[in-house]
Design a protein around this nucleic acid. Structure first.
Lengths: 343, 343
DNA sequence: TCCATTCCTCAAAGCGCTTTGACTGCCCTC
DNA sequence: GAGGGCAGTCAAAGCGCTTTGAGGAATGGA
């Protein structure tokens, strides 16, 4: 069933039917109702490809889906996607997901934009001086960045959390509790958030004249497996030098790290304190850990909702948003942080 | 840059350029190379919407993305999506994701099909007597089901794992180890796989004249939280009646259940044995549990790859596949299963 | 020399929609 | 009764591509 058939059925022109459907004012109320009724009865749906061709708008947002084999950011990605989806549903938008070779994300993005399949682009997992930014700026298509790219001129629209402040505050709390030796289980060093979180930790330490021991810093994929391995390695250090405070970039890393701590028969919150960043994953709640985890919290899902909201608003040109948003993470104290043990 | 401009630039007709691009034989080799070179230089990409309109093919697969608030199947969903993406990438396909109100999945599917945005549909999280099946059959569009729908005529193309056999085998192993009282931490009862798994357990028990105590069966969302809660409840039973063997429908449930067991100071593999179904989630490996978990294993990601392969093959009409595939899960024995404790 | 054949190229139609600009009644005003 | 304004409708063009059916040039055989 297409417009032509529908309009013939109704004895109207395609123009009138189209206008009736799209809410133009110059259509008689009676006529409009007649059209709407017919649509309901026939189940007619406008062909999106044709609509897209005619209007240049497709009602869709383009995502490049990271697909490195073994890429395990997927819990975080999917949590975020859920948020995006929630909002998109309200506006009858959908997503076009292009899986991309991780070495060719710029290319994938370009192809997606040129395909005419999407109205706006979205990127995340930002790196330092991310090459995608330059490319996005040359495109005349709305885009939004989740995160930021350190080393690039901050002249692009983004939504990010204040990673530096979050880890600064977390470190400061641990310092106040008397901790002097710190470990940081971080995400891959090329990722912007990892760089900023490390900066935050170092800034807080520097205020006390302390420095982060590089031997106690890891940059790995954010899996529980890596968390376990790294923590095991760190726990093998001599007790006098071993960190008493651990910062984790994700509750997933923390999951593994806690297991290592348990296996070493150490007590979380007594022998070792831990603060993890909590993306509010449905799967993994810090309050459900055997020893509930102190966290810096910021919901990835809410970020998804907000990003969809902004992107869709921009496509519809209904609203103007502040181009750049920086969310504060909350520091939530639970049992995994305690006074530093006496040496 | 569009076809018209490109062909003018080259002094050729649109037809010739289009043919050169799409590999038609009647184009002079020289001409074709000239065209290809120009494409490379200008970065020309055919407009997908136009292509779609002209050919009726879009190079995309439609997914309905489950988005119930608090839906926590997302780890599993995302693992699967990764597999789909991996294969789609090889064929330059993409996905159109429509977020759907969980009460209107049929509607969302219908809209997606009618939108002309997709060449094939895919559905999962099948329920008993799933209403989506009837709808899909009326559509003249290839589709593939992940899972099956008990209670519906099995005359549709699907890929499923043999859930019943997997849980039958797992139960049998536990029976051989002397266990007599079983618990089952299952997914939502309306889901097909949950029904079949329960059937599998009951079939094995029935062979020994045993029955599953309904008080020891749970049907919950597959989160670690639920796993914890249910297991805590079960462990409060009087010791004489308390199950010594636990089957979990997911390693995620097992994660919570194990925590409950630890908190109760019970030893996994000694006081209580456990077998979980392992979807091979990147996040959660059963071998990394403090006591490595015995599992029935079947990779969700591989299923994704295979499904994309079949769907794309069908769209391109290059290959015909067996319409229905049933994969066997492997039973992998680790330390979480041991001889039943003496009463 | 002419025609048949092969190889390459082209103009034009069509996919299903939106949108422009024109048209038809009709009512109102002067 | 002529002219203007308005509400409602329409035919046709255009979005960027593929594909059909036809045409032109070169080659070879009769």
């Amino acid at each position: 069933m297409n417009l032509k058939q529908l309009s013939q059925m109704l004895g109207l022109s395609q123009t009138t039917v189209s206008r009736a459907l799209n809410g133009y004012p110059e259509v008689n109320r009676e006529t409009r109702e007649r059209v709407l009724k017919a649509v309901r009865e026939t189940g007619y749906r406008p062909n999106k490809a044709a609509q897209r061709l005619a209007t240049g708008k497709a009602g869709s947002i383009g995502l490049v889906m990271p697909t490195s084999p073994g890429n395990s950011s997927d819990v975080h990605f999917s949590e975020f996607l859920t948020g995006l989806g929630e909002e998109a549903l309200r506006h009858d938008f959908h997503f076009v997901l292009t899986p991309a070779d991780p070495n060719d994300e710029v290319g994938a993005l370009k192809r997606l934009a040129a395909s005419g399949n999407v109205d706006a682009l979205f990127v995340n997992y930002m790196r330092g001086h991310d090459p995608r930014l330059e490319m996005l700026k040359t495109l005349s298509m709305p885009f939004l960045v989740h995160g930021r790219s350190i080393g690039s001129e901050p002249d692009y629209p983004f939504l990010d959390i204040d990673n530096e402040a979050a880890f600064y505050e977390a470190t400061k709390l641990l310092l106040q509790l008397g901790h002097k030796r710190f470990a940081l289980l971080n995400g891959p060093i090329y990722l912007d958030f990892a760089i900023r979180r490390k900066n935050g930790v170092e800034a807080a330490l520097a205020e006390r004249g302390l420095a982060l021991d590089e031997a106690c810093v890891s940059h790995t994929a954010m899996t529980d497996e890596q968390g376990l391995l790294v923590m095991e390695r760190i726990l093998q250090m001599e007790k006098k030098q071993r960190p008493t405070a651990v910062l984790c970039s994700s509750t997933v890393l923390a999951l593994g790290a806690v297991r290592a701590i348990n296996q070493a028969k150490l007590k979380l919150g007594e022998d070792i304190s831990m603060i993890a960043h909590d993306d509010v994953l449905t799967l993994l709640k810090p309050e459900n850990f055997t020893v509930p985890l102190t966290t810096t919290r910021s919901s990835l899902r809410s970020a998804g909702v907000r990003i969809a909201e902004r992107l869709i608003g921009e496509i519809k040109r209904t609203e103007t948003f502040p181009a750049q948003e920086l969310w504060k993470a909350e520091l939530i104290v639970r049992a995994s942080t305690g006074v530093a043990p006496a040496d």
